[in-house]
Each structure stands twice: as C-alpha cells, then as structure tokens.
Design a protein around this nucleic acid. Structure first.
Lengths: 258, 258
DNA sequence: TTAATAGTGTCTGTAAGACAATATTGC
DNA sequence: GCAATATTGTCTTACAGACACTATTAA
C-alpha cells in the first residue's frame, strides 16, 4: 500500500494530451400552446459566433463531476435547480476530434425536462441571447422530413445550429419519444404535477409525439397503469373556470430507475 | 469569417484545466455452458494494482473520437474489430473528480456484445492478465441480492472490482436486459447468427435474464416478430449430430437504431 | 340551444403466460 | 421402446386502437 501512495505522489498528470470536456443540455419544455419547446442560446463568441446552440459549458476539472457540471450549467442558464423535481439525464457523449475547431472537445450531452413555469431564462457567459423555440415538423431542402425551430421573431432550421447540435437535438427527441411509454417523463413536464387532470397529461404526450391521441384509450391506460397502481392519487372533483368541473390527480413518484 | 480564423489562431487551448478521458468497455459473451460472461483484466499497475477491472484506456486527444478509442481498446484487448458485426454501444459517462486517485478521469463506458468464437483475449498494456468470468447471481455480506464472477480458478465479488466498475457492470446488465425485447442484441451474441436454431436464441435470452423461458411462447414470438417480418430468414431443415434435425434460420439485420 | 369538454362503453385484433399434446429421432 | 428434443395447439387474461355514446356546463 505504501507502494501505491508512492506511485501517486510521483504521478505526473500532464503526461498525456487531454481533451476538453463539456456538459451540454437539451432543455425541453411545453409552452402555453401545448407545444414542445427547446431552449437555445445565441453564441456570443467564436466559434459559430451568432449561431444558435444548446446551452453548455466546460467541466471544471478536479472540482465537480460531470453530472454536477450539467446541473450547474442548467442553473446558470435557467435558474432551475436539479432538486426542483425536474429531470436531468444523460443522453450521449460525443467526441470527434474536429467537432469543435478550437481543440478536441468531448461533450457529455444531457436532456432536461422542465415545466415552463420554473424557467427563468437568462443568457449565460458565452451567450448573447437565450430563448425558447417551438419545435415543429418540416421539410429540409431535399424534401426530407426534418425539424425547425420557431421563436419570437425568428425561425431556425436544424442545420443552422452550431456544431453537431442538430444531431443532438434529434437524438434527444427520439429518446424522449421512445421513453414516453415506460417512464414517467411526461409528468415532469406538467405545469403542476401535484394537481393536474388527465387532459393536461394527454396534451404533454401529444406535444412530444406531434400526434393526436385518443382521449378514451389514454384515460383507460392512465387509470390502469397509474391510478390503479397507486403511482398517482385521485384528489377528487374540482371546479375550473370556463370549463365543467374535472377530476384532478397528484403524481406520487416513479418506480423505475433505468 | 476572418474574424473567426483570427480567433482560432490565437486560441490558447491550455487555458482551462482538463480532465483525462478514458473509454472503458463492459464486454459480454455467452460461453459453452450457455452462461453470460464478462471480460475482466487484472490491473498490472497502480492504482488498484492486482484488482480486477473492465478493460479500457485513455483517449488520445486530437487523434481519435471517443467511439474510435473504444473500438481501439476493444481490438487491443480481444482482437475483435467493430466491423465484425459485433455490437459496441455507449452505456454511460461517469466523471466524479475522485473516482480515480491519480487525477480527474471522465470515463465513457461502452457495452460490447461479442460471440465467444471471435474473442482472442490478450492482456493489454496495463494488464497482467485478462479472462472471462461467468456472471452469477449471489448475495453480498448484507444478504442482499448481488452478483459475483466465476473464472478459471478464481471467483470475485462485485465490490472487489477496481474503481466504480461494480456499478458500471450492474448498469450494463440492467440495460442489456431492458433492451432485450425491443432490440436485436441477442442475435449478436449467437455463435453464428447466419445459422442458428430457435433454441440457441432462447438460450441467449435465458443467459441474459438468469431465468428459464417457455419454449413454446418464445417460438411463437420469434416466428411472429422476426420470421413473419422478414428480419430473419428460414434456411430449412438440417441434420445436427446427436439430435433430431431442426430448422435453421439466418439473421438478416436490424430495423431499429435508437 | 349549442358547443365544448368530461367521461363511459364496446368491439376487434393482437400479445403474453401457462401448460398439454404430438412428432421425430438417436440410442 | 425410451429418452431427448422439436414442434404444434389451446386456454386465459390483458392490452391497444378505433369509435360511438352520454353527461355536464359555459356562453
């Protein structure tokens, strides 16, 4: 064991070439129109100056874990703390030597699901501007099915994004959709998951899938899989303005962790 | 644009503290006894000298992508090339500052599924020894359900592994199981996926799940989901020694990519 | 009274788990 | 013939998609 201590004392960490590491985040939310949104920032510096990108920043080596870096970055951009029952999870790690012209950058990419009410968006260090964009289906110049992003007074196509962020957003969306039926992701996007009705949850699913769902079948699934299994509690009937009264529910918690 | 060129010319990459980055691989295979195995190496140097660990190595910054580093590492340890129709995919990225006592190491962890016939195991640079271990269910000292690893002349418990590799292997196994029903992972573990019968595929599923499956129901699923959808082709009836003849199949390819 | 929203009921095809039965072949 | 393996069949329960219907309330 002294052997090991001695080894560590003489270990020279600068011996190998190291890449930079960043934590980048695809932040999804649902807006007032029940549409799926993504948070983008306008880059203030080179490279890709003035291009839109997903928020992110460098890992402070030796000081924080990569998950902590992502949480810090999320907080700096949106004021949201990970403890606020949002959902921040790893998506993928990318690390081609040339994806950033400055130097070799390995990016650990996260997806965060945040109710819009919690977001207090502010442009961080590198950013000129930060705002939400509606995600819409569309077609690229080849006529292939693609995505574009509609924000206040501007609209961006997928391939105008900085770096490889176009691919990252697509991967994030695919994963979100794939997970929808066997996770509780949709609940974390509700305005208030302690007080919602079935239709609100349905709207979240529809926003993610870009597709209308059958109310009746959704209701049956919800009652069987959530209420029936005590993962959601019925709060009773409540008045709501402008509509007939409805049954509200409270989300209790997840059982899954993979 | 000259602006950007100038910026890059003066960019000083050494400005920020950087972590080291490694690609580590959980390599699974199925042995002659139809049991699930994992490849471990015995560390030859500090830290964790003489402890067993999953293979891995440092990313050569600027020279290769992180996926390439994983492929290189797999090749160095097993002689297997990624083109050999094996399955190498990202599992998770871990990066606590203190998980490696030398310096801050961010590890991008991969899972590889390799038929045993392709493996030509050799101990790489850092390793004294490399070999396959059967993965078995067991109980730890608290009586909790756990895993242990049985190799030629030795047996290892989960928490005797180096670093946080115990958690990584558990995560890999959980993921493998979770993916079993909606991916084609099991096919890549077959001895020969161009020539197999239903029982062989069943044995792979059983090995992964640590659980017996009903032949009849498995067969029905296989015919419906694979043969029926032309993802597997029937080759016809074939003699096999010591048994009655059986129908062989050929795996054609995957449809999924997430 | 109409329109919108909340909620119920039903029909169909398909899938999963349990398990029984038959068929073929080596020994 | 016996044992092992391959293959088929059946019964039950559960779930998904489509769609028609009723109930309540605001305007």
């Amino acid at each position: 064991m002294d052997d090991e201590k001695e080894f560590l004392a003489h270990y020279d960490a600068s011996k190998y070439e190291r890449p930079s590491v960043t934590a980048d985040i695809v932040i999804f939310t649902i807006d007032e129109d029940n549409e799926l949104n993504v948070l983008l920032i306008k880059r203030g510096g080179h490279p890709y100056k003035d291009h839109w990108a997903i928020p992110g920043g460098f890992l402070e080596a030796g000081k924080e874990s990569i998950d902590e870096a992502a949480a810090r970055e999320l907080y700096e951009e949106t004021g949201v703390k990970v403890s606020d029952s949002i959902d921040l999870r790893q998506l993928v790690t990318v690390g081609s030597p040339n994806r950033d012209p400055r130097t070799h950058v390995v990016s650990v990419v996260y997806t965060a699901l945040v109710p819009k009410g919690l977001l207090h968006i502010k442009a961080g260090d590198d950013a000129k501007e930060a705002k939400l964009f509606k995600i819409r289906k569309g077609y690229d110049e080849n006529g292939d099915l693609s995505l574009y992003f509609v924000g206040d007074k501007c609209s961006i196509t997928l391939k105008n994004l900085a770096f490889d962020h176009d691919e990252l957003i697509i991967t994030a969306l695919k994963r979100l959709r794939g997970r929808l039926n066997y996770t509780d992701d949709a609940f974390t996007l509700l305005k208030d998951k302690s007080r919602f009705d079935i239709l609100e949850l349905l709207r979240v699913h529809e926003a993610i899938l870009f597709q209308q769902l059958d109310k009746s079948n959704f209701r049956r699934m919800f009652l069987r899989d959530y209420v029936g299994k005590h993962r959601v509690k019925e709060l009773g009937q409540y008045e709501q303005e402008g509509k007939r009264k409805t049954t509200l529910y409270k989300y209790l918690g997840s059982e899954y962790d993979f």
